Amino acid sequence: MTLWRPTGPIELGLVRDSGWRRWPPRLPDQPIFYPVLNEDYAIKIARDWNVPASGAGYVTRFEVDAVFAARYPVRQVGGDTILELWVPAEELEEFNDHIVGTIDVVHEFKSATAG
């Protein structure tokens, strides 16, 4: 199953530190890890939310074992294509164990003032 994750520079640095194979643990105020099922939605979040918040936004793409991923609900959080896979934070390590291959950066957005 192909998933996308919009992210900012701090989270991306932690993914890089993992050898591009794992997502970092969620912060206490982040009970859900939510990769998205649509590249266009990921682009919108990275460009419109991450860039203003941190000066840069990235879209990552990765594969996860579809049989394993089926245990998590897909939530529609907007229009028909605004879909997220909701993984409880306490299950993220097990989810990471089912990533196939590496987490790849497929788009990068920076603010006009970012260096």
Rank of each mutant, 00 (worst) to 15 (best):
L92F: 13
Y41G: 03
V67N: 06
R61G: 07
A46S: 06
V105R: 04
V64K: 00
A114T: 10
D48P: 00
L14C: 06
H107S: 02
R22E: 15
T81P: 00
D80I: 07
Q30I: 07
G115E: 12
N50P: 00
P35T: 02
F95S: 05
G19H: 06
A70R: 15
V87H: 10
F68Y: 15
S18H: 11
D65N: 14
R22W: 11
V59R: 01
R22N: 10
I10T: 13
P28S: 03
L27H: 12
I45A: 08
T113A: 14
A89N: 13
V77A: 12
A69S: 08
D17K: 15
I45P: 04
M1E: 11
F109W: 02
V67R: 10
G115C: 05
W86G: 01
G13T: 13
D104Y: 01
L92W: 09
P88W: 15
M1R: 07
L83W: 10
D97Q: 14
S18D: 14
W86H: 14
A53P: 00
T60D: 09
T60S: 09
P6Q: 04
G8V: 11
P52Q: 12
D40S: 12
E94R: 08
R5H: 15
F68T: 07
P35V: 07
D80M: 03
A66C: 06
F109K: 00
G78T: 04
Y34H: 08
E91A: 12
T102H: 13
L83V: 09
G13R: 09
D80V: 09
D48K: 03
I45S: 02
L85D: 09
V51Y: 04
Y72G: 05
G55Y: 05
F95P: 00
